[in-house]
Design a protein around this nucleic acid. Structure first.
Lengths: 331, 331
DNA sequence: TTGAAAGCGCTAACAT
DNA sequence: ATGTTAGCGCTTTCAA
């Protein structure tokens, strides 16, 4: 920068003004730009960050990127950040409080401008640290008790579960099994139960099958267990789509049809489940909108220099009916 | 840091030595550590980076994270980096040279320590800039002509296509259609063709269907087109698994069976295709091993302070036979 | 082993 | 509109 200044016959400050687009006389601008071009000067953003305390970098914590729900989120967040001139520092938290803490301290020491955090158990245990961060923090897709001390953009997971339950109930299903990632998805299951309870019905604990593995194989195993425990089950609610995919396979392999014999309802509406056969009936979670609102919230705080407004925003999940659900077969 | 030094009765330098784990007398160490704890001191990594020119951050360029192939890669890279104390700066290149260039300049200005770049057309056009980067750069999963000026960790895509072709040929298939993401996957198709050409057979151009969309719907459309163009097709090779999933659906919806009437072979072996029904026969690409080798290569260069060894590493793709392929029905 | 001085490249604040 | 001065927090160099 000093070289550029010397060559243009101005001071470093003027070069700085040019680089950061401040008011400069046109002729000075031309001189400086020429010197910049001649010398191939590139500003050092680390130095700028040291001086300004801002890095144009936003951290994103997700439990994992292997899950398509989160890869869609990552994609969306990256889009939004790039559009506004920010970089994405990605960290996976893996449901582990220690990982989360380590990442958090690292981000703090790097002075990221903001942090967006997806729900996970490891994170939940580090809420106090998040609250004390020197930069704006927002939570999203938060299931379970959200802290009141941080802004949250989420959906009402219990209500989403209710939507699935009401739908199955109104179709006429009375013998419903649940395969679930527990305890994480407890609210989804509770909502489903409430829909049936409203009608004087109930879903017993022994109809709820917790998955050992959190993938299609886990869904398959739990689905098979559900069918073996009660062959008359007419519907299965899976607390997320990947489990639902496994459940579909368990049903089909048992010689039953979807949705003829057994209806399946998933949760999340990840991109691929609308395209496979049978297209999955599922709860559509507005992930991209959540990401958008959370990013907006954060960047507004960054721009204004004030802490983010401590809002609790709930977006509306919807039921998307496709080909995996139907009324129960008449007996 | 000055505060800590004052409180411990030493100089900043000694504090620095303590923080970076250099030799310090035990009693001094104790004093300094106490002062650090008392004041809740956290080193400022931006300042350190300015001084040392290293940020403990590695950039990763992928075309997109929505594609499970790349989300697996991202996950693996993040794992490896965290394990070695590095951060992950993620950028999506979207097949766009301008995006790529912008990201690249940004990373350079931020002095990342290294950059890992997945193949994509937008990147290919920016190779000269990559070569001139001040930090180590490695390419991976490179299809098509890899530049000789940068280290590459990849597989032989043509050979991988050959494996698929030889398998189908040896099963007895003679009427094979291809659905492909073109021109990106030209080598995969070429390999398939070579396998058949070896045997005096050929796959005509009109048996190769380029996908309009790069998702399951695109695979479905292309699959349907292939079946309509020639109802006697006995096998379909899809140049990646997502397309294959769509192709399976096209076959099933046409009233045919997989693999009874039509065999389907995919490419990539993304996690979910081993779990869905029918489990997909596919070319297993060692993505995680590629990521691992590329990361190793880069970090070795970073640690040694020398440019990365300009190697061209080819890992071995394998054929994974599952349930979507069988000999053609006897006529 | 520890201390003192200098400077990485930039921008904020003020003076001109 | 531009120049001057100072300093962000750290590490490197050299001296003690």
């Amino acid at each position: 920068m000093a070289d550029v200044a010397a060559r243009a016959g101005v001071t470093k400050q003027t070069v700085s003004n040019v680089v950061s687009g401040k008011k400069v006389r046109p002729e000075t601008l031309a001189k400086v730009n020429k010197a910049i071009a001649d010398l191939g000067y590139k500003p050092n953003l680390v130095a700028r960050s040291l001086r300004t305390g801002s890095t144009s970098t936003v951290g994103l914590f997700v439990p994992s990127v292997a899950n398509p729900f989160y890869s869609e989120v990552v994609e969306e967040v990256e889009n939004l950040l790039v559009g506004r001139g920010y970089n994405l520092l990605l960290a996976t938290t893996r449901d582990d409080p220690d990982y989360t803490r380590a990442h958090l301290e690292n981000l703090a020491a790097r002075s990221v401008d903001a942090l967006l955090v997806a729900c996970d158990n490891g994170v939940a245990q580090q809420i106090p640290m998040l609250v004390e961060a020197a930069f704006p923090v927002a939570l999203f897709a938060w299931e379970g008790d959200p802290p009141t001390t941080l802004p949250v953009v989420s959906i009402d997971y219990e209500h989403a579960g209710f939507l699935a339950g009401r739908y199955l109930r109104d179709l006429g299903h009375r013998n419903v099994a649940v395969i679930a990632d527990l305890p994480a998805h407890t609210p989804r299951v509770a909502g489903l139960r409430r829909a049936f309870a409203d009608d004087g019905l109930a879903i017993d604990d022994h109809k709820v099958f917790a998955c050992i593995r959190d993938d299609a194989v886990g869904g398959f195993d739990a689905g098979r267990a559900a069918l073996e425990a009660d062959p008359d089950v007419t519907a299965i609610f899976a607390t997320h789509d990947i489990l639902a995919v496994g459940a579909v396979e368990a049903v089909v392999r048992s010689g039953r049809q979807v949705p003829g014999d057994v209806s399946i309802v998933g949760f999340d509406d990840i991109a691929q489940v609308g395209q496979i056969q049978p297209a999955l009936t599922t709860i559509t979670v507005p992930k991209r909108e959540m990401a958008q609102q959370a990013v907006e919230l954060l960047l507004r705080a960054v721009d204004s220099g004030r802490p983010p407004t401590n809002v609790f925003t709930l977006l509306r999940p919807t039921l998307t009916i496709r080909d995996s659900s139907a009324p129960p077969r008449a007996t």
